[in-house]
Amino acid sequence: MRHHRVLRIISKLLIPFIMLFALYVQFHGDFGPGGGFQAGVIFASAFILYGLIFGLENARKVAPPSVVTRLIAAGVLIYAGTGYAGLIGGANFLDYNVLGATPVAGQHLGILVIEFGVGTTVAAAMITIFFLFAGRER
């Protein structure tokens, strides 16, 4: 798709906003619709758009597969690690009450962190799956 000038320029303009929107959905999910699952998918779609327009090689340079595959596991570890942080604080697994000064503050922090973990895993998994499908030789 190298010769489609309109697609190239429009997607160059759009990609930063898609990523910004993904971050908004990620961190505003506590107050409005959204959260880690949706944000992860939207964040991945920015990379997928980049890969579709500018070629898979360039996309692999922006998001190196070795890093992205590690991020899939990192998200799950962030999530489970938050659970263990609760255990260390003296509460049950995945009980965030002890993470902050007050239970509500702890809940807030815990939810923010685990949503970040969810977003990381979903985004990284979707990018990896796209790279694998698009990179398969016919």
């Binding site: 959260g35 699952f37 998994a125 694998l132 499908f133 398969r136």
Partner: peptide, 20 residues
């Protein structure tokens, strides 16, 4: 259902990989 949708796309991807 929210979580089921995301798990659904993950399993669809797996099915498509098997098809390939």
């Amino acid at each position: 259902i929210l979580t089921a949708i995301v798990v659904g796309v993950a399993t669809t991807a797996l099915g498509l990989a098997l098809v390939v």
